[in-house]
Design a protein around this nucleic acid. Structure first.
Lengths: 226, 226
DNA sequence: TGAATCGGTTAACACTCGTTAACACTGGTT
DNA sequence: AACCAGTGTTAACGAGTGTTAACCGATTCA
């Protein structure tokens, strides 16, 4: 019932990052520290944390940009921005809709912890384990199982993630390079070919319901229709 | 040693009461059915059951009132309330302190049985240890026992620690090298293989509930889902 | 029409993990 | 001391997973 809460913290200033991490860990949070936006995204994808704390100004990918990407996938996960004094108020406030909040630097650890607990309690009521459906299939993402009538198949991690995004964007074109960056971390030739292989695998596993198709849009990406 | 557990069930809707009674009796509980609060109190007094299952809305005496009276005499006996949808969350939760729990109608028999077993097991081990639950299992970390229905198994030290962390991070990926450092002190090749062996052992011991799975995330770690 | 490119598919490969069993170590018993 | 049971580590093999390579058809555009 009382799981340890995992948090991804993105802060490019190493010593500050370390201090925050340690402070939060004394409060029984499990903190994964990233030193830029890209790292934070990778951690977010692999760990599925309960909450994100993002410095706004970071190399590689700033906090706002990162938050926008994450909101495409999950529009409930709480995000707390750490903003410098120079950030103008209205820009920051634009981002505090949804499950967001922000803290101006410098801040006290207590303030941060209070906000984290507020946001966590606000969302504790809803759970994320809803079964997704594709045609006559049922797909349980956390369990990585794909069920057709009474037969369940276990999917691999990659297959499950790819299918998850296809379903989330059902009947829309899923951008090739976006999905590559999301799942593989980088859009290069080999990763692209690798993804094509997984599309083939998913097509095989989904062909029991021939209303389902994964259509290629040459040069753009794939679209799951059903 | 393990006498048959006696339960008093108070439910004013006769057919539902009968169904619950019969279901529980297939699980080797002896169930005494009352059709209102007063009857239930009489049964409680004469039988001294190990546990009570009380519908909240009943004629003559409602479940909460009855529970308050019983608590005057015995403040440890586990009580499970059956609540209708209309009951507000906070009123119900106010009663879940002490040895209480509640179930919202409609519920599955499985849910009820899991809660009964949890509560029975918790009182057997008294306050010193809070029982963790995984699916239909109950796990007592300090005692290193894993219980499924009425069968308890002793876990070894390593098994128990590993399971503990998996449960604490339920539905999240448990980082391979982090758990190795925590339990083995070092992340090297042999320790890694050793951990894999223990994962196998835990899977075997958890396979009586096939809703529970320990999923591998290649390169990252393991995730317990249920 | 022909060249270039993209994607579909299969198979080979490297690597990680699953599983079983043998082994070593510990502490307790006879 | 010899024995034993329980626990955890190491070894070995096989299966599973994901990447790379290779070949081919399809599409696009000059």
């Amino acid at each position: 019932m009382d799981n340890i809460v995992e948090i991804v913290l993105a802060e490019d200033e190493p010593s500050l990052g370390q201090i925050i991490k340690e402070s939060l860990e004394t409060r029984n949070f499990k903190v994964h520290l990233a030193k830029n936006g890209e790292e934070a995204y990778a951690l977010y994808s692999s760990i599925s944390p309960k909450l994100l704390v993002l410095d706004v100004m970071m190399p590689k990918k700033d906090g706002f940009t990162l938050a926008k990407e994450i909101r495409l996938e999950d529009d409930t996960i709480p995000i707390i921005f750490l903003t410098a004094k120079s950030q103008t108020q209205d820009v920051v406030e634009g981002f505090t809709i949804g499950g967001n909040d922000y803290l101006k630097k410098p801040f006290s650890m207590e303030e941060l912890i209070v906000r984290i607990n507020n946001l966590l309690h606000r969302t504790r009521t809803q759970q994320n384990s809803e079964a997704l459906t594709v045609g006559k299939y049922t797909f349980d993402f956390p369990k990585q199982t794909l069920t057709f009538e009474d037969e369940s198949h276990q999917l691999t991690h990659r297959e499950a993630h790819l299918l998850f995004h296809l379903i989330k964007n059902k009947n829309q074109v899923l951008d090739r390079s976006m999905i590559l960056k999301k799942l593989w971390g980088d859009d290069d030739f080999f990763n692209g070919r690798s993804m094509d292989v997984f599309i083939t695998k998913l097509r095989k596993k989904l062909k029991q319901d021939d209303a389902i198709q994964i259509i290629n849009v040459r040069g753009f990406g794939y679209k799951l229709v059903c």
